[in-house]
Amino acid sequence: MTSTYAVLSEGLEKRFGEVHALRGLDLAIAEGTVCGLLGPNGAGKTTAVRVLTTLLRPDAGSARIAGHDLVREPDAVRRAIGVTGQFASVDGDLTGRENLRLFAKLRRAPKAHARADDLLDRFELTEAAGRLASTYSGGMRRRLDLAASLITRPAVLFLDEPTTGLDPASRNQIWQAVRDLAADGTTVLLTTQYLEEADQLADDIALLDEGRVAHSGSPATLKALIGSYAEVVVAHADAMPQAAVVLDQLTGGEPHFDHERHAVGSVTTDPTLTLPRLVRELDAAGVPLLDASLRPPSLDDVFLRLTDSPTDRKDLVA
């Protein structure tokens, strides 16, 4: 393998009739990292995964997965990847054990039966191994999906919304499995609706909007793009304009007033602004301070701000 990128795509395009689902998707995912693919509904996340896993042929552009050309060497790509998600799942008409044995055979795993039993054990499915997969709970089903993708260790694992609809305990189990895989050197591309999930797991994030990557970088980089939110609560409404003047000097951002709570807030991208300094300056100006906070943005804020997602929560960060 010549590239150090496990996934490298340039200008991938995909149309479905009138719908232009991918409009030049460029991705570069370094080996052994976890990349979170985020974006509002309809941004092209699932189409991107389907193209990168050989399920859809791109209309234009190129990509290499684990060093193999997506269009010219689809079988080499298929040998290198594992896919788990909303669309690629297991056979509900077979038991958990039968599913894993089948996939182990199709992957030519040596000692297919033993490999299936190992995975059942590792994902705590041994007890349910003889039941039809269609009778599994959501969490068990997703663990079986994931186990089926790990028969032979994939170089690149694609997870399409792996924890959608799961309870927190099941979600934590999937998260731990993903962390273990990443620690072992598997590259993971993950789409998710949960920003906390991306924040927890991803080394890098690609924010998709209208079929292309709008922003990318580490969660910290993306958060720095939109800045922290400074907010102070004062003793009475009369002090609010004075607090706003000081905040304006410190942050340069447009102040937001919450008259009910006597709070004034503003966005800052100045990394030298710390909470002690904020408090000192306000105190020095004689502002009757009750509370002050300097909150780093959540990934939710990043998402809402950078994808033009139509929502009334924009006022949190704008």
């Binding site: 298929r78 990847i81 896919v83 998600g85 909303q86 690629a88 799942s89 297991v90």
Partner: peptide, 13 residues
């Protein structure tokens, strides 16, 4: 119309 078909299509078979 079920997900398992797409998994087969992503296998080197």
């Amino acid at each position: 119309h079920r997900g398992v078909m797409d998994r087969f299509r992503t296998l080197p078979m």
